[in-house]
Write a protein that binds this DNA or RNA. Structure first.
Lengths: 292, 292
DNA sequence: TTGCTCCTCACGTCACGTGAGGTGGC
DNA sequence: TTGCTCCTCACGTCACGTGAGGTGGC
């Protein structure tokens, strides 16, 4: 009875296609699915049944997460979808989805770890750990092995003093923040190899240091670095370090480089060798995902 | 030298915190992180180091995918984050992420299936398959077993004629589309149980049919239904059916109910029993995910 | 005349990125 | 005076949902 050119008003057509009328208007506006006919006086949109298959094609592609603009491109007047073009888009989409999935899985793991942490302790961690990328940086530094953790403060002071003195002799101006690096595979309290460093301009990199009193090197960039901000006396920083290590363990990560202690509130000691009372410190630990 | 109340302009602070100045302005506007002090004449924002830990907290929460508004709520003046509130948000977030992950995994599987399909055939499928939910619908129907597929057209015509005649006798008005259901576990070409149905008003449901010439029942809703639109002669609809079954198999799904053939372009036969030439048909197959 | 459907704006979504256009301190 | 940094708008993002305000056919 109804022939195939029966026309439908937008409401009927939207029911046939199981989509909202708003969507049809939107697709009309994008040129993605124009009604077969639009009344020039009332602006009513009239659709025909053959447009249903085009709508279906659109919905199928949309269901894969392909943006409407690309679908428009794909379905442009050249009737048959170019398989090659479609393949390209699908490959892009595949890559995106794989990325997205990884990111979400990571997030879910973080959320679960924090939930578990709350269940166990009833309280959130006292420090907030952020995972972020850090860029490479050029530093001048000196190293020493410290026998026991009690001597750490003393050694650090003298190492920094030594470093600044040498840099001054060589006419190199320290640029910014101090960074203390702890070279230890695991947390230990004895025989800790420590390195005190300051940022310097990149152009000093590679210049020989004739008296060998310090080294210029590049701290490598790290895509995944767990970081936290600590404010308080230096001799309580170990609590924060332990918190960071605990976080890393709880999230199934492993350290991928020495721990970095950034002195954000300026030098640890003033010109008289007096230690700052409650410095602001950022602890950074490069990490990697352990399989599991 | 610098005491901990050293103030930073937005640029310096943004470098310390590894975020953009725009973000800091945004957070200021949201009341999420107000600068320690804002110059009332120049509107310059001045930050102090203690704000860095708050920034860190924000970034940590944001990294879990928690919206800024909720973070604002969480960090509201009551200094210590309420562990209970946080737990609630994390649980919500956990649920969201699990959902998201499922959806993305599904999408990825679809994308992969289509890519594979292109690799194999060099051409996309001639039909676009959409997976969508379909609501429950009330229908009046009659059934029969058809011995061979060649007789299908004949039987369907007589079944529909019979159905319409009975409905008229009972004063029930068919509401819309015809639906032919194929009750077969797998694709077969002999002894097919077929059911012809039309939509009727819901209030007819449950009313007894005294002469038993037809049945009123509800087609169940189905969250996952693979659907395609076919336009062409009735006797070539089998090609479309095979395409749909192939799609379902390729995507590791299994049928979860009879195949439905919706006659979108009106009745299959006119009042003289003449078949429509090129009807528009939607094929629907309820599906379920097979393990794997 | 009352419902029903249709129409065209236009705001809101989320967390900023990216100009535009202009000002203050070294 | 020239750069550098800072400021305040305000648009754009993606695919619509959701009114607001108004019109045509049964």
């Amino acid at each position: 009875m109804q022939d195939k050119r029966t026309v439908f008003k937008i409401g009927e057509f939207s029911r046939l296609g199981q989509v909202s009328a708003r969507m049809l208007r939107h697709y009309d506006q994008l040129g993605l699915l124009k009604p077969g006919h639009t009344d020039r006086f009332t602006s009513y949109r009239y659709y025909t049944l053959d447009q249903l298959s085009r709508l279906h094609r659109i919905l199928a592609l949309k269901g894969l997460g392909i943006p409407l603009e690309q679908i428009t491109d794909l379905l442009r007047k050249d009737q048959d979808i170019s398989a090659e073009k479609l393949r390209g888009m699908l490959l892009v989409r595949q890559a995106e989805l794989t990325q997205d999935l990884q990111a979400k899985q990571w997030q879910l793991a973080e959320v679960n770890a924090r939930l578990q942490q709350i269940e166990q302790e009833g309280q959130p961690l006292p420090y907030e750990v952020v995972v972020k990328p850090v860029p490479a940086q050029t530093v001048a530094s000196v190293r020493a092995v410290v026998a026991t953790i009690a001597e750490m403060a003393f050694y650090c002071r003298s190492l920094y003093a030594q470093l600044y003195a040498s840099l001054e002799r060589h006419g190199i101006e320290p640029l910014g923040t101090e960074v203390t690096l702890y070279h230890a595979e695991e947390y230990t309290e004895t025989d800790i190899e420590v390195e005190t460093a300051v940022l310097v301009d990149r152009r000093h990199l590679g210049k020989p240091v004739n008296d060998g009193t310090y080294t210029i090197a590049e701290l490598p960039a790290s895509d995944l670095t767990a970081a936290l901000i600590y404010q308080g006396p230096f001799d309580e920083v170990t609590a924060a370090i332990l918190a960071l290590l605990k976080y890393v363990a709880q999230h199934d990560h492993a350290p991928a480089g020495p721990l970095r202690e950034l002195h954000l509130s300026g030098r640890a000691h003033d010109e008289h060798g007096v230690e700052q009372e409650a410095p602001v410190i950022e602890l950074q630990l490069p990490i990697q995902h352990t399989g599991n």
